[in-house]
Simulated assay, not measured.
Amino acid sequence: MDILNRGRYRASRAETPDELAQAQRLRALAFSGDAGGVDADGFDGRCDHILVRDQDSGALVGCYRLMLLPDGAAIDQSYSAQFYDLSALKAFKSPMLELGRFCTHPDYLDPEIVRVAWGAMTRIVDGQGVRLLFGCSSFTGTDANAHRDAFALLRARHLAPDPWHIGVKAAEVVPLPDAPVPHDAMRHIPPLLRTYLAMGGWVSDHAVIDRHMNTLHVFTGVEISAIPEARKRLLRAVAG
């Protein structure tokens, strides 16, 4: 089912096992560089999978998965709940949407792919009355020192508000350092997380070491009500 058509690209929901398998293969390529591999887990069957295709060739150029939760009482069903104590979010009384496995094809560098992906997500958020978008934002590798500047920036400026404090659950975690923030720290923030932060997003006070995915990740939340009006207008302009 198409969600958004814009120029060269269209976003749709995966509706068949083959379409899901295509997304899993793209994820393996994007995350591990494995052209013949499959990235799959037990959460795939609980999620909607959004596919972004080149309308001319039909090639799959981007994808992500979404899990809609009716409110915070269902937060333990989320992928993120494996890694974080999300007890505080159980008090959230409105629909929530978990975003995961967001990736684009490494051979397609057109920024319009990401814009279409976000435009489709905006339509879903508005259509479902979602009030909180959340997920795990990843940094490559498991060496926290390699991301010290980025982590210092997150701790200094973007920690979760006290009512939504994210607790420690995973066995291997790294506290975000209370350290000076270099002037160029933002350039060390991954692009997806940078987008979240531009929307008023916030993060956990620690990163989880995920050796299976060879990443460090921070829990990330964006309250829809906190997104700056100018940013909302941009997103809705893409969503049409």
Rank of each mutant, 00 (worst) to 15 (best):
E98K: 02
A74G: 07
T16W: 09
S32R: 14
V173T: 15
C136D: 12
V61H: 05
K90F: 07
Y9C: 08
A74M: 03
S138L: 08
G201R: 06
V125T: 13
G72R: 02
P17I: 04
A30V: 03
V61C: 09
V173M: 07
D149I: 04
L192E: 02
V38H: 11
T140V: 10
V238F: 05
A120P: 13
S78M: 06
I124H: 11
G221L: 03
H147C: 09
T16K: 03
D143K: 08
G167K: 13
A81R: 13
D48I: 00
V125Y: 09
C136P: 06
D2S: 11
R101M: 09
A150W: 07
R187A: 15
P70Q: 03
S137Q: 02
H206S: 06
G62Y: 11
T215L: 04
Y79G: 06
D210E: 14
P190V: 07
G135V: 04
F134P: 06
M199S: 00
M199H: 03
P95Q: 03
A91E: 15
I209T: 15
S32K: 14
D39H: 10
G127T: 04
V61Q: 10
A14R: 04
A152E: 02
Y64M: 10
A171C: 01
W164C: 08
G129A: 00
R46A: 09
R46T: 05
P175F: 09
H188F: 12
F43V: 02
V52C: 13
A146D: 07
A207K: 11
D143H: 14
F92I: 02
F43C: 09
I50V: 15
A239Y: 11
R157Q: 14
P175V: 04
N145W: 01
A237W: 15
M1E: 05
H49T: 13
D205R: 11
R233D: 13
L69N: 03
A88Y: 06
I3W: 11
W202C: 13
A91P: 05
A88D: 15
A11Q: 11
V218E: 05
S87N: 11
R155S: 15
A11V: 12
A179W: 14
G42Q: 13
R194F: 01
K90M: 11
G201W: 01
I224G: 01
G36I: 07
G135K: 01
V125D: 02
P17L: 08
V116H: 08
S12Y: 12
E229A: 14
D162Q: 12
A117P: 03
E112T: 15
L69Y: 02
D2W: 11
R53D: 15
H217T: 10
